[in-house]
């Protein structure tokens, strides 16, 4: 079995501060933060902090094994690559089918090139599908996990998930006396 890695947050720990949203947007910038501010670059995090009067939790892609977003994409722009569900923004033509298909609301639309802002030539924004890419290639791993002051995020790797499940099965089979 070849399960994917994904990132999920614990609402028991989340303080609803949005560090994760900023960390995500900054991690995907192709320029410095000061430059992004100077050219008023669009803020395009790939996860969304949901705050209700009862709980708070960031919501992001679960990197589904049989991803509804990929299955429905007419452009075949969404594929699995190295265990993550990724969007080929060159193929995407912004039909939003993936937004409708995703049961978590984790798919969004954003300006292509918005993460490489250029003050001289403002992006003639094509709007394309936009989602968590697990910060592929980032040395420190997913930026949201690193930036969360409450340590609310967990990177769920297949082996750890299997171990957790095995532990729970053991506990279920042998309840404490």
């Amino acid at each position: 079995m070849n399960m994917s890695t994904f990132v999920v947050a614990n609402p028991r720990k989340c303080i609803a501060c949005k560090s994760c949203e900023i960390a995500c947007a900054v991690a995907h910038l192709k320029t410095t933060v000061a430059t992004a501010g100077a050219v008023d670059a669009p803020f395009q995090p790939r996860l969304c902090l949901v705050q209700t009067p009862l709980a708070a939790m960031p919501v992001q892609c679960r990197q589904c094994e049989d991803a509804p977003c990929a299955a429905i994409c007419p452009a075949r722009a969404i594929t699995r690559r190295d265990g993550a569900v990724v969007v080929d923004t060159d193929r995407c033509f912004g039909c939003k089918s993936c937004m409708l298909a995703c049961p978590f609301g984790a798919m969004d639309m954003a300006a292509a090139g918005g993460e490489a802002p250029d003050a001289a030539a403002p992006a003639k924004a094509r709007t394309v599908a936009h989602k968590c890419d697990l910060c592929a290639g980032r040395p420190g791993g997913p930026a949201c996990v690193e930036a969360c002051p409450a340590l609310a995020f967990v990177v769920v790797r297949p082996d750890e998930l299997q171990k957790t499940v095995a532990d729970r099965r053991r506990a279920a089979a042998m309840p404490p006396a």
Binding site: I15, A16, C17, K18, E21, I22, A25, V26, V33, A34, A36, G37, A41, F43
Partner: peptide, 19 residues
């Protein structure tokens, strides 16, 4: 959470003001 006092500094920080 994102802002500090009269915003003189944080309103001029890209990520904080956007959040």
């Amino acid at each position: 959470a994102a802002h500090y006092h009269t915003g003189t500094m944080t309103r001029r920080c890209w990520g904080l003001d956007a959040a």
